[in-house]
Design a protein around this nucleic acid. Structure first.
Length: 554
RNA sequence: GCGCCUGUAGCUCAGCUGGAUAGAGCACCAGACUACGAAUCUGGGGGCCGUAGGUUCGAAUCCUACCAGGCGCGCCA
């Protein structure tokens, strides 16, 4: 609807230009907003004001000209007003809002699907935690944001792939193996001086114990290097399995897992560096190789091969992103913890050196989570092995509540996550507000069925009976659902879906307390059943994108 | 010191690419179940949009400086 009206305005402006009333316009798009105040219409545009200010003309005169040249061929508009300094306010005929109800009932679960992406291949890479320990609460937020963003883009018509990058090649992996080895030795009574830099969590000891049970003390004799290599491969595998299971139970699944080791196995890192060197992006200085990231705005050049001959993490990451592009993805989206923001310029620089546009790689920063229990901060330290794991959160508050809580803020805004509030089944917890709306509607529909009423259908149903303010508001909000999704997809902001749901549920709850759906008035009941059935569909579709359940009973 | 993010009601936060009278939830106060589910609803108080300038028809939104908090500034990942 929004687009239709914007289209009308666009054509009208062209007509005005043709009629010599305006100079050539170069508006990139027609801004069309839904005014907060219903007196200002269903949609409002400031196009006349923008054009007039560029032409140094009277905005109201421009607005008049646009209105005069409007050709409402479909008869969408009830009226068009010029208001204030030069706003064009559009009032849509009620019949067009009712039309969206039958759209929804016909499209069902595909209502809201867009063709924004045109099938373009997009990859969303997220979580990507090192397999050195279980996922904790901090990872959970990134997991949900990535998962929902992928789902959103899929609905918006992109071909989306979810990927987890396993950092299994760096020095922290040696630390992991070493940590297990030390615990293993302890199990056989050796005294060790457990290093500060190693992982202290209890899970390390458990892995050591498993190895000890299966293979006894054979690794006490072997040389340390081999033992560490073996221990870290066992440990990372065990831990990775745990991570996958936790994510699955959190409703997060991936299409692929990409191992950093893989890059080295295929010699990808060296090949890439060679080709970059040939093209002059890499130079040697002081026994190390440097990437000229300053060519693309980074504040200093970055090392790719260390003095000891080992490639840096950055080197592998360039190769990894190159690999992503070579797999045919046109847009890459990386989801990172906000503490990695300093890394953005060099990675952006590197993909540009590889010949891609800066915008082909979008990085979404997710701020860290501030974990609370009943208002009191919960201390966490990964090194010391003191952290609240994702598993514990899942067990304590449940998947739906946890996910919803992570989606209630813009991702680059700090988030307080209070375990006590999140598990409360009360009005302090917004998940239930929306789920309750869905369950209530299902309850109404069950009752209607019990009473032998026909299933909601737009056939032989007088939808013009839906004339109350809440009914109109609900129809308009549901009609705006695709616009909301489009905005969220374009801006990559998943929290918009949550806010939309809260608003929609609020209007419904208010309506529910005012009006009865199932009554003795058969035509009115039929119309209202159509309305709530449409609502049920929209709620369910949106919740599905969020990966949050839409229960029929609670 | 330099860079990035944040600063909006008592608390937690929305506010879409600059628009019309700045919103929501929680908390607080007062009300609503013989009505399809009260995990709900109705009403109320509450604001120098961090501060000061600037841009313009118009600024919470854009620019500059400053203040406060967070994060980053490695041949770690």
């Amino acid at each position: 609807m929004k687009k239709k009206i914007a289209g009308l305005v666009e054509k009208s402006i062209s007509a005005c230009v043709a009629a010599g009333l305006m100079a050539e316009s170069d508006l990139p798009y027609i801004e069309m907003e839904v005014p907060a105040n219903p007196d200002h219409g269903d949609f409002s545009s400031n196009a006349a004001m923008i054009l007039a200010s560029r032409a140094k003309q009277n905005p109201r005169r421009f607005a008049q000209a646009i209105r005069d040249h409007l050709h409402d061929t479909e008869g969408i508009l009830e009226k068009t007003e010029i208001a204030g300094p030069g706003f064009l306010n559009f009032f849509v005929k009620d019949s067009f809002w009712r039309q969206s109800l039958s759209d929804i009932l016909n499209s069902k679960e595909s209502y809201g699907r867009l063709n924004l992406g045109g099938g373009r291949k997009v990859q969303v890479e997220f979580v990507s935690a090192n397999p050195t320990g279980p996922l904790h609460i901090g990872h959970a937020r990134g997991a949900v944001v990535g998962d929902v963003l992928a789902a959103l883009l899929r609905v918006a018509g992109y071909h989306v792939s979810r990927e987890y990058y396993i950092n299994d090649a760096g020095s922290q992996m040696d630390n992991l193996g070493k940590s297990v080895l030390y615990r293993y030795r302890e199990l056989f009574g050796e005294k060790t001086d457990f290093p500060e830099s190693c992982y202290h969590g209890g899970y390390i000891t458990e892995i050591a114990r498993e190895i000890a049970q299966l293979e006894a003390d054979v690794y006490l004799e072997k040389n340390e290097k081999d033992a560490i290599a073996y221990f870290n491969s066992v440990a990372s595998e065990v831990i990775m399995e745990g991570i996958k299971k936790d994510l699955r139970d959190f409703g997060v699944t991936f299409d692929s897992y990409f191992s950093e080791k893989e890059l080295y196995r295929e010699n990808g890192v060296n090949d890439l560096l060679t080709s970059l060197r040939e093209r002059g992006f890499i130079y040697s200085d002081g026994g190390t190789l440097w990437f000229k990231t300053t060519d693309y705005g980074d504040e200093k050049d970055r090392v790719v091969i260390r003095q000891n001959g080992e490639p840096t993490y950055f080197a592998a990451d360039i190769a990894y992103h190159q690999n992503k592009f070579s797999r045919g993805f046109e847009t890459l989206i990386d989801i990172w913890g906000a503490d990695h923001h300093g890394y953005i310029p060099r990675l952006q620089a590197s993909i540009q050196a590889l010949g891609h546009d800066k915008n082909d790689l979008k990085i979404i920063l997710v701020q860290l989570v501030n974990l609370l229990r009943a208002g009191q901060p919960v201390a966490m330290s990964t090194r010391a092995g003191e952290f609240v794991t994702l598993r514990e959160v899942l067990d304590e508050v449940g998947k739906d509540a946890a996910r919803y809580n992570f989606l209630m803020r813009r991702s680059d805004s700090h988030l307080d996550f209070d375990l006590e509030v999140a598990k409360k089944q009360s009005n302090e917890n917004p998940v239930y507000y929306v789920q309750y709306a869905h369950a209530r509607i299902c309850s109404i529909l069950r009752l209607a069925a019990e009473k032998g009423m026909a299933k909601p259908s737009c056939e032989n149903c007088d939808l013009s009976l839906l004339s109350g303010p809440e009914e109109k508001a609900l129809m308009k909000m549901m009609a705006a659902y695709p616009d909301m999704l489009e905005g969220a997809a374009k801006s990559l902001e998943v929290h918009r879906i949550t806010f939309y749901l809260n608003e929609l549920a609020a209007v419904f709850h208010s309506y529910y307390n005012k009006a009865k759906v199932v009554t003795d008035d058969a035509p009115l009941s039929a119309a209202r059943l159509v309305l709530v059935e449409a609502l049920r569909v929209v709620l369910k579709n949106a919740l599905k994108i969020l990966g949050v359940g839409a229960p029929e009973k609670m």
